[in-house]
Nucleic acid binder design. Structure first.
Lengths: 208, 208
DNA sequence: TAGATTGTTAATCGATTAACAATC
DNA sequence: TAGATTGTTAATCGATTAACAATC
């Protein structure tokens, strides 16, 4: 019976990963929770608590070996694993994400792009032909698709999402402004850009 | 002495706003916290608690008037206010954001785009000329800029961010993978896409 | 060994949920 | 009025922080 790890902890992992990578770049070999805490702006206690959810990666009196910790967090995050992804919606956002070099490096392989627009279908992004969304089922039958990236501009997202979910996709990265309610067991990660911008606006207005 | 409203509450406001908008669209005039709770997947108690941070928008025995509540939350979020924005980094992501219709509707007016690349400077996106980043100071001196949207691909973001902050920008919407540490009092809202994708990967791997 | 710093337990703080009196 | 549902206080739950014994 493994203990449940809270979302708050998980969301901090990529942050740790980034900071450790920065340390590696400037050749820092070891770091204490205290020093890391100062750099990241969180408490040393929280860092130790977080890391100990996954194991004892440090050493008393020494701190943490940066490279070891970096690798361990990478392992926890599944950096070694590879995921196939498809993008649904070949608009500006879909295009931007298709061109994000970082994702491939992190184990996410783009294998298909879909759209409804006849202007787009047949064209290529990053050497990948844009297919019509009607061929989605076929494509998923022939290829294992782990993650669908939804960048369809608005409206009837739920239908598309439901379809994707039924095709055995394991996760959805949702850029549409809608929340998804799915009947299948699919992991959904939302990126609600408008929400984020509105929060920024609120905070600015508040600051006076 | 106004009571401090937690970030958790504020981050839920845009979500309420969206759901209320959906209700308006299908002509639902009133809603109880109970019914909204079922739609949104959060507790009725939390909804009432959240809303009462800002005022008593409901009516005992009746519930909430959808339109009134929608407008009130809009007011809280500052939807009536207008913010000028500039985009720094005219790459794919900058391009995608510049083309986002929603933002204008929500009160965010794009008034400038900047880049370093000679290929891009002089070209237009959405009728806005891309300027060289060296002209940023000049531009900010001549125009009030509320929000800077940072979509510079990587590296020395901190320098650019620090500069922007010194020019009197009130908020930064940060799409770079770095966290910003600024000496000025500027509101920063991060959109760490790689972090988000890694969390998705983690959850999928976990699900087994 | 002495000093440093972790791993871990206990204390605190804050956010969520439950309960219910107020009131439409 | 009776029924419904809010606004709000109190209880619970979970996450963060503090403290310190274990140990390198």
């Amino acid at each position: 019976m493994e203990k449940k790890i809270s979302t708050a902890v998980i969301r901090r992992l990529p942050r740790y990963y980034r900071y450790l990578n920065d340390l590696l770049k400037v050749d820092i070999k070891r770091i204490s929770s205290q020093e890391l805490s100062e750099r990241m702006g969180i408490t040393a206690s929280q860092i130790r608590q977080d890391l100990n959810c996954f194991g004892g990666f440090g050493q008393q009196g020494y701190g943490y070996n940066v490279e070891v910790l970096y690798k361990e967090i990478g392992k926890i995050l599944g950096i070694d694993k590879r995921f196939t992804t498809i993008i649904i919606g070949a608009g500006n956002m879909g295009n931007a994400l298709a061109n994000y070099e970082n994702f491939k490096k992190r184990g996410f392989d783009l294998i298909g792009i879909f759209d409804v627009s006849p202007d787009k279908v047949g064209k290529e992004i990053k050497g990948i032909k844009i297919m019509h969304i009607d061929s989605l089922s076929d494509f998923c039958a022939k290829n294992r698709v782990d993650i669908a990236i939804l960048t369809v501009p608005a409206q009837d997202i739920s239908e598309v999402a439901e379809k994707i979910a039924s095709l055995g996709v394991k996760g959805i990265w949702n850029f549409s402004p809608q929340d998804l309610k799915l009947s299948h067991d699919v992991v959904v990660e939302n990126v609600h850009l408008s929400d984020s911008l509105m929060v920024l606006g609120y905070k600015i207005a508040q600051r006076g």
